[in-house]
Write a protein that binds this DNA or RNA. Structure first.
Lengths: 177, 177
DNA sequence: TATTGTTATACTCTATAACTATA
DNA sequence: TATAGTTATAGAGTATAACAATA
């Protein structure tokens, strides 16, 4: 579907550019330059849930990244911290499975979170192959702050699509969490 | 949020693995290995629209890729073909902007679609810097088939979340198309 | 033998910058 | 100068395979 995932660094994206004149020409085709974005037909795309969901997901991640930019926490990091916080002692495999992250990728995510002293890997007493994951004291404090910022982000979502729609959405998609 | 986006090449992903026994132990902690996925608390994550949307988007893309696997068309390719089909003569910049794809990335996408003779880049008569994009005859025929498969995919979505919920979703997210 | 964490590789996607040819 | 298409590079993220330690 469509791309473009990260922060809009220049933050001008779709503001006031394009005066939005001219309907499409009489004849057969359009003469390229003067065709505005929202005059370009989406055709079948408009009826595909995946297209809308993808565009929305991009918007929502951008807002999350922007809102938690000051603390340098991205959505995946937030989800890992949250799950460890709620289930201390979990193994890496368990976290990876629960969140649908590759275990190979989780290794790097945890390396970074451990370097920032938010998470610690303890040797499991019962199975010495695995690590028991815990938040550090600092991690718990930090997570509380991240949560407040994430709640702010969530308010942005509610503003964007409406409070009731947000709740309806959560309900419709509850099977996917 | 959570990762894991592409085709499950080996297609075993989450089938029948995990017998799903044991409730969590009595004592203080859990002894890692025997904690099943759905016993792991999500905590704040469950209330975040972004998390659910991300998981849903992964599911929906996987189904799209699987359903259109025989014709080797991925969501982004489908969106590009659809927009060109509905707006012949469009420039690369216009397509990129409309779909939120980087123009640098669209170059490669079009290279591949042009090699498969689904799309052709014609020199624009009015602005020799730009290309006028068109579907080839073959591209039009192929797109009709892709559309039928995409409709099948869309029926999978309706089965998964319910017909009415799918429509509600499209309505809620209509601002993002 | 199988599993956990790890390392490494390849491929997709995103974000940028720079180049060229035009305007 | 600015824009369209292109090339190149760096960084996430994903998919795999393989290895060491342990079960």
């Amino acid at each position: 579907m469509a791309g473009n995932s990260q922060m809009p660094k220049t933050a001008k994206s779709r503001a006031g550019l394009q005066p939005r004149f001219g309907r499409k020409q009489a004849g057969n085709g359009r003469s390229q330059g003067d065709v505005m974005d929202d005059e370009i037909a989406l055709d079948a795309l408009a009826g595909h849930a995946g297209y809308a969901v993808r565009r929305f997901q991009i918007w929502i991640f951008q807002d999350f990244i922007r809102t938690l930019g000051a603390v340098d926490i991205r959505p995946t990091q937030y989800s890992v911290l949250t799950v460890i916080g709620a289930n201390p002692g979990l193994s890496q495999m368990a976290v990876a499975k629960r969140l649908g992250i590759e275990r190979a990728r989780l290794v790097h995510l945890l390396d970074s979170l451990e370097q920032r002293e938010l998470v610690s890997r303890l040797r499991s007493a019962t199975d010495r192959r695995s690590h028991a994951l815990h938040l550090t004291a600092r991690g718990r404090t930090a997570l509380a702050q991240f949560r407040r910022l994430a709640a702010e982000h969530e308010r942005h979502v509610a503003e964007k699509i409406g409070k009731e729609n947000r709740e309806r959405l959560l309900q419709i998609l509850s099977a996917f969490t």
